[in-house]
């Protein structure tokens, strides 16, 4: 072997080694890209599923609130109407109109019976979590609303987390595609280096190696991100 042939052979060996490193890198990055793509897909699906569930839950809670508030409103109206009849009865009695007073009181009793029955149907009076502690107090509507929307809020939180996961994995997948393109360029340069003359071979090998280093650094930054 001549003196000039030895470095040439070393460069050839270096190119083969770099090509091997490049192909290994391509294999790893292709696997990472496919994995990131699958994870993005799964997170996207989970996000959509949770959005569907949250939407259904909100609809149901809307129906429930309509019912509970309508019940509360009806019984409150009856209760106030009964009170108004009672006051009317007292006023009529004070004015000496005893028949009218009796009629007003009878009407008050009927409307109070309606209110009493409605009260037994209202969650604001039957559920100790929302019922007023004292007769003059209002039911705890704040606790009712918080409990009502707790499940939907939890679903929305899960949905948001899944959406964030989707964006993160999607960005990683895009990053890996870019790296694969860079690695293809590096392999192309190593391929040219195999066929090129000695001087050009060195140039292609150095540039290919630089692209390989940049690609590896980019993969590391994507994985650490």
């Amino acid at each position: 072997m001549s003196a000039s042939a030895a470095p040439t052979e070393r460069w050839r060996t270096l190119v083969v080694l770099l090509t091997m490193a490049g192909t290994v890198a391509v294999s790893i990055v292709a696997g990472l890209q496919a994995d990131a793509d699958i994870r993005a897909d799964t997170a996207n699906r989970d996000s959509q599923y949770q959005a569907i569930r949250a939407s259904g839950e909100l609809f149901r809670q809307g129906t429930r609130i309509d019912y509970d508030i309508a019940t509360l409103a009806a019984l409150t109206k009856d209760r106030q109407e009964s009170l108004a009849y009672e006051i009317t009865g007292l006023e009529q009695e004070a004015g000496g109109a005893l028949d009218s007073a009796a009629s007003a009181r009878a009407r008050a009793a009927v409307v109070a019976a309606r209110a009493d029955r409605a009260q037994a149907l209202s969650v604001f009076f039957t559920d100790p979590a929302y019922a007023a502690a004292e007769p003059d107090q209002l039911p705890n509507q704040q606790a009712y609303l918080e409990d009502t929307f707790a499940a939907a809020n939890e679903m929305v939180e899960v949905q948001n987390r899944a959406a964030d996961d989707y964006h993160r994995w999607s960005r990683k997948s895009d990053g890996f595609v870019a790296v694969l393109t860079l690695l293809a360029v590096a392999l192309f340069m190593f391929g040219l280096a195999q066929a090129a003359s000695v001087r050009t071979r060195r140039t292609f090998t150095i540039f290919g190696a630089l692209v390989l280093i940049v690609s590896t650094a980019r993969v590391a930054s994507i994985l650490l991100a």
Binding site: Y67, A74, D78, A109
Partner: peptide, 17 residues
């Protein structure tokens, strides 16, 4: 349930009447 509620309240009203 909304209809049942009206029924029960009206029934209570009837009993009072």
């Amino acid at each position: 349930a909304t209809h049942a509620q009206r029924l029960l309240v009206t029934a209570a009203e009837v009993e009072a009447l």
